[in-house]
């Protein structure tokens, strides 16, 4: 039930941003649409609603967004250098890394941020054993521990504080 209420509030906020004007017609349609959405798929939204109460998680989320934007800028300069260089200096391969995260949301955000950061790109997740398969455009090390240290850890410790 708490999950349904949370999804109702979030979809109403998204609707208000999307229309960006408050009069009663927009509000009425938005209320009806949000009630429909939370009735239809609201129970899939989250499994543990108590995580939304903790204000520390939101501060960590802001920090995570800043780190993500900085890493994205680095990633794009790196890829742009590899594309315009005449010799195309790449050394691709698929490596395997280990992760400690367990919940679905945390794994999804970890995979997304790995895809958006320098030279790495998630191909598959093995959720039971906690492995990620990653395509790396410039393989530094094939060893699982070294690769985990280079690719995963800078995001893992932030995402652990947000989602776990």
């Amino acid at each position: 039930m708490k999950s349904r209420i949370l999804s109702f509030i979030l979809s109403l906020i998204a609707w208000l941003i999307l229309t960006w004007s408050v009069d009663w017609q927009h509000l009425l349609i938005g209320l009806l649409a949000s009630i429909f959405v939370s009735w239809a798929v609201g129970d899939l939204f989250t499994e543990n609603p108590w995580k939304f109460k903790d204000p520390k998680r939101y501060l960590w989320a802001v920090y995570y967004i800043i780190i993500l934007i900085w890493e994205m800028i680095k990633a794009n300069l790196d890829v742009a250098y590899r594309v315009v260089h005449p010799g195309i200096p790449i050394k691709p391969g698929i490596v395997k890394v280990r992760t400690k995260l367990k919940s679905d949301a945390a794994l999804t955000y970890l995979a997304n941020s790995i895809t958006l950061t320098p030279g790495t790109f998630t191909i598959d997740i093995d959720k039971e054993n906690g492995f990620l398969y990653i395509h790396w455009i410039n393989v530094v090390s094939e060893d699982i521990d070294k690769a985990t240290e280079v690719i995963v850890q800078k995001f893992e410790r932030i995402l652990e504080k947000i989602f776990e």
Binding site: M72, A75, N76, V79
Partner: peptide
């Protein structure tokens, strides 16, 4: 500029996975 570089990567790089890397990152950004 980044859109253009991403599409250049889509044409220049040698295989599917590398193309996906360059184009997804640069074009999204």
């Amino acid at each position: 500029a980044f859109d253009f570089l991403g599409c250049l990567g889509l044409v220049r790089l040698p295989d599917l996975y590398n193309r996906l890397q360059a184009s997804t990152k640069c074009v999204t950004f």
